[in-house]
Simulated assay, not measured.
Amino acid sequence: MCHNCAATAESGLAAGTLPTAGTVPSRRSVAKLLALGAGLTALAACTPDGGTQPPSSSSPPGTSASVSPVSATPSAGPGTSTAPATEPGTAAAPAPATTSAPTPTSPAAGLAKQHSLTDPASPWLVVNKHRPLSPADYVPADLVQPNIALAVSGEAAQLNSTTAAAAEQMFAAAARDGVTVTLASGYRSYGTQVATYNSYVASRGQAEADTASARPGFSEHQTGWSFDIGDGGGACSFQPCFADQPAAVWAKANGHRFGFVVRYPWMLHEITGYYYESWHLRFIGVEAATDMANRGIATLEEYFGLEAAPGYL
């Protein structure tokens, strides 16, 4: 056993003097050299892996890079994320999670019917700052304009057919309760999200833009499964005070009956990546939405057993 290998080696070095050229080493010099060798051997025995130290990293830790405006055409091709490029020399981001089903221990795993968490055509698709759409420029194949009160036109008035049917039922139920709900923003194409995100970056800077607008290829609006609502009176649209408007209050209390959840709840931005949006509803199906409500689980990340996504990787 080695108790003080460093001291042993140091004493060997102090005692050993190499013979000069052309001289014959004495027995005492040979003994000193042997002692030196023994000391170095003992020192190596006390160092993990025979004295080989772990290599130190020559690269500095990766840092968040500034992002230039995003191109309207995904340059990486289908099936890949087209998040804005990082500056040369920064570490590459790890690949996004590819979980295709809830983890066995997640609350959703107990439901009778399971869906993919990565397929854009799945009602359980989870899109967040760690989980981009694949392909990045995905377009739903079944976009339709629902028969509901609209505050927008064009592509923003569209949803996928499943979400549209559920929205028609929910808006009608709200109307029976005396609450007028309007569709304030529905489907948003990849190209539209490019323009939306770039405008935020230009006016607020990237850091603040990332708290309010998804990067292209990372937006739920592109899936057709989500939309923003407005109140019939038009008050507080896309503002914090909207949470107190009749449409928001009703949707929060009743949305699960029609398969909807408030996707970005109050004070859970460290999980979802976005501050409270009382107007942003997401369809996941009646069974899952009701189960979340009954269990008091507010985010899809927690419900499906996924990691929090407060920022981009």
Rank of each mutant, 00 (worst) to 15 (best):
217 G>S: 08
123 P>T: 03
52 T>N: 10
142 D>P: 01
30 V>Q: 15
173 A>Y: 00
131 R>A: 04
5 C>S: 11
99 T>N: 09
299 T>S: 04
98 T>R: 11
280 H>I: 00
54 P>M: 05
60 P>G: 08
204 R>K: 14
273 G>F: 01
58 S>M: 11
106 S>L: 12
128 N>H: 01
60 P>W: 08
41 T>Y: 12
215 R>W: 00
86 T>R: 12
199 S>N: 06
253 A>N: 04
195 A>N: 07
52 T>E: 10
222 Q>D: 04
92 A>C: 15
170 M>H: 01
96 P>Y: 09
144 V>P: 04
175 A>R: 10
136 A>T: 06
183 L>C: 05
167 A>V: 04
167 A>S: 08
284 I>M: 03
93 A>W: 13
65 A>Y: 07
50 G>N: 12
131 R>C: 05
264 Y>Q: 11
106 S>W: 14
291 D>V: 13
230 G>Y: 07
188 R>Y: 06
92 A>M: 15
42 A>N: 07
108 A>W: 11
305 G>D: 04
66 S>I: 15
240 P>A: 01
237 S>V: 06
87 E>R: 15
227 F>S: 02
48 P>H: 07
43 L>D: 03
71 S>E: 09
221 H>Y: 10
230 G>V: 08
138 Y>I: 03
124 W>C: 11
302 E>H: 15
223 T>Q: 00
77 G>F: 02
301 E>S: 01
132 P>K: 02
304 F>G: 07
213 S>F: 11
296 G>Q: 09
203 S>Y: 11
228 D>C: 07
177 D>T: 09
34 L>M: 13
248 A>P: 12
56 S>I: 08
257 R>A: 13
142 D>H: 01
312 Y>A: 00
135 P>M: 05
229 I>N: 02
148 I>L: 12
139 V>G: 08
183 L>I: 10
105 T>L: 13
82 T>Q: 07
187 Y>L: 05
304 F>Q: 06
270 E>C: 12
260 F>I: 03
245 Q>D: 05
273 G>R: 01
231 D>E: 14
253 A>W: 07
232 G>T: 10
50 G>Q: 13
97 A>P: 13
238 F>Y: 13
200 Y>I: 13
6 A>N: 15
191 G>M: 14
15 A>S: 06
111 L>V: 12
254 N>I: 09
6 A>E: 15
121 A>M: 04
94 P>T: 14
221 H>G: 08
309 A>M: 03
189 S>D: 10
55 P>Y: 14
19 P>F: 14
